[in-house]
């Protein structure tokens, strides 16, 4: 089972290396959000920009994530490759986990590239407690891809297609967004992890609940 899941993940990574469309779209879009926000915040004092910065980053990650999630499932629909995937000797939950890990990896890579660019553009330092920040990044992104993978598979079956994904996705990931922003703000202010264990727990609980439930119900989404 585990090997099959990694196979699906590997297939996505190979496809991505050959086309580079998913990653480039996500990265450029996230960068655009960061740049556009600069104009929105132009008249704000520097201190308030620094306070809003982690929130801004997560907004950029969320929106570029939606873009990537849509593309990732649309690729499967083109040429009916989803049918081939369903014929593969792996149960539906396995397909979910494979796709979910793929989305997670692509989101993580584009986020890790945006962070240093953001630091340069906004003259901001992430070096204090970077490991802690990385942990939050992983937990938050895992939550996004857990919900996003199954919702993108739902949205692709509707008449509205990709337009529906943000409408389904955004209200449900509100806890991840709150938890990630809250912990990021405090981490970047130099607070140790011990003081925010409640938030870390809520992120972990969210990830565990949504990964297991989606794993169990994914077969009802894929049925043709």
């Amino acid at each position: 089972m585990f090997k099959k899941i990694l196979r699906i993940l590997w297939k996505d990574i190979v496809t991505e290396f050959r086309t580079r469309e998913l990653f480039s779209a996500m990265f450029v879009f996230a960068l655009l959000v960061v740049v556009v926000f600069n104009f929105a915040f132009e008249s704000a004092p520097r201190e308030s920009i620094l306070q809003a910065a982690p929130g801004l980053l997560w907004v950029a990650f969320t929106f570029s994530g939606v873009l990537g999630l849509n593309r990732s499932i649309a690729i499967e629909r083109e040429n009916m490759s989803i049918q081939a995937l369903m014929l593969a000797p792996v149960d539906r939950g396995g397909i979910y986990l494979g796709k979910m890990l793929g989305n997670f990896v692509f989101m993580m890579v584009s986020e890790l590239l945006i962070v240093p660019l953001f630091a340069v553009l906004y003259n901001f330092s992430f070096s204090a407690r970077f490991g802690q920040f990385l942990l939050i990044l992983v937990l938050g992104t895992l939550g996004f891809s857990a919900v996003g993978t199954i919702f993108s598979a739902i949205a692709v079956n509707t008449k509205m297609r990709d337009v529906l994904l943000p409408i389904l996705f955004l209200p449900v990931v509100v806890p991840v967004l709150i938890g990630a922003v809250e912990t990021s703000v405090r981490t970047l202010a130099g607070e140790p992890l011990r003081g925010m264990m409640d938030w870390v727990k809520i992120l972990i609980v969210f990830d565990v609940i949504f990964i297991t439930t989606s794993f169990l119900v994914f077969e009802f989404v894929l049925e043709e």
């Binding site: 919900v147 199954i150 919702f151 739902i154 079956n157 509707t158 389904l168 209200p171 449900v172 509100v174 806890p175 709150i178 938890g179 809520i202 609980v205 969210f206 609940i209 949504f210 439930t213 989606s214 119900v217 009802f220 989404v221």
Partner: peptide, 19 residues
């Protein structure tokens, strides 16, 4: 599809509330 969304959405409600 809506049953799947109904379940995931409902599981989210307590997490939303507490967070």
């Amino acid at each position: 599809l809506s049953a799947v969304f109904g379940i995931l959405g409902a599981l989210d409600v307590p997490i939303v509330y507490f967070s």
